[in-house]
Design a protein around this nucleic acid. Structure first.
Lengths: 152, 152
DNA sequence: GCTTAATTGTAGCCGTGGCTACAAACGGGG
DNA sequence: CCCCGTTTGTAGCCACGGCTACAATTAAGC
């Protein structure tokens, strides 16, 4: 079946992007989603240590809105990935890699919130939406946000 | 013009949002993610029918970058949710509900891309990032985007 | 009309991230 | 010092969304 497929740089309602391009976009979104959970945990653990002095599984679970069992399983994944450490019945700590990730995520989160506010979104809605959006913002987009906000 | 709000670049915030607020944000993000796949399928099926005249499982799979088996399983979920219909060895079609969803998603997608471009992101990066971002943009944020773009 | 390639569908596996239920360890109060 | 509530951890369930392998059906070529 011959397809007269013309690829255009500018999105046009009547035509779709090439199969390869479109597949690539979806793959990017899926891989971003795969790391989203790790990013959320890293940032939260870092925040808790910073404000409470320690990050305990039950606090993590309450803040994420999940059961403590779920939190503990996810923390196990963080440990597998080399982002966190913990000993039995002690709190959770971040490895240097985990701490770096947390800083990156926190900075990105703030940029996203601030950009949303800058274009007219309320602070509250910005905080809520940013929680989902931030994981899908590429480096290039992040730079554009910073530049737009005058923090280039 | 940049806000004179001062940032400790990467430090943990002085205080965190309340446990309830924070949990609520994460729950929102999780529920948005749960519908993301349905939204992507609905939009793609609608696009394929519009441009090719039909939506076949293998085309859907290729465009999403997944195996045809995965696509078929997801289409089954769409059918369970009342968004699509299909008969054995025939193409896939959207129910009225599915078509409405597709329209909403398509409009939202465009708005997100256009806003990203408006704040300085390249068209290419905007298209890629929007694929992940769009599912987390609330109605309020959407309205803010439209207003910002002068399409209020 | 038959054979064959492509498409469609089914079965079954895996990891993730939810959950509940139960067990083990810790830590305070009596 | 011991008991009990809280915290932490484990076990096992489920749905989802990937995958491969195989079966069934359709459609195309000769």
């Amino acid at each position: 079946m011959p397809k007269s497929k013309s690829y255009k740089l500018v999105a046009a309602p009547a035509d779709l992007p090439s199969e390869a391009d479109q597949a690539h976009r979806f793959e990017k979104a899926r891989s971003a989603q795969a790391t989203a959970l790790l990013e959320d945990y890293a940032e939260l653990i870092s925040d808790l240590i910073g404000t409470e002095g320690e990050a305990r599984p039950t606090d993590i679970a309450r803040r994420l809105g999940v059961s403590h069992a779920t939190a503990i399983k996810s923390i196990a994944r963080l440990k597998r990935e080399g982002l966190a450490t913990s000993k039995l019945y002690r709190g959770v700590f971040l490895t240097p890699a985990g701490e770096m990730l947390a800083r990156r995520v926190r900075a990105r989160h703030r940029l996203v919130v601030d950009l949303l506010v800058a274009v007219g979104v309320s602070q509250e809605a910005a905080e809520v939406d940013a929680e989902g959006i931030e994981h899908h913002v590429s480096e290039e987009t992040l730079r554009a946000f910073a530049k737009y906000l005058g923090r280039a």
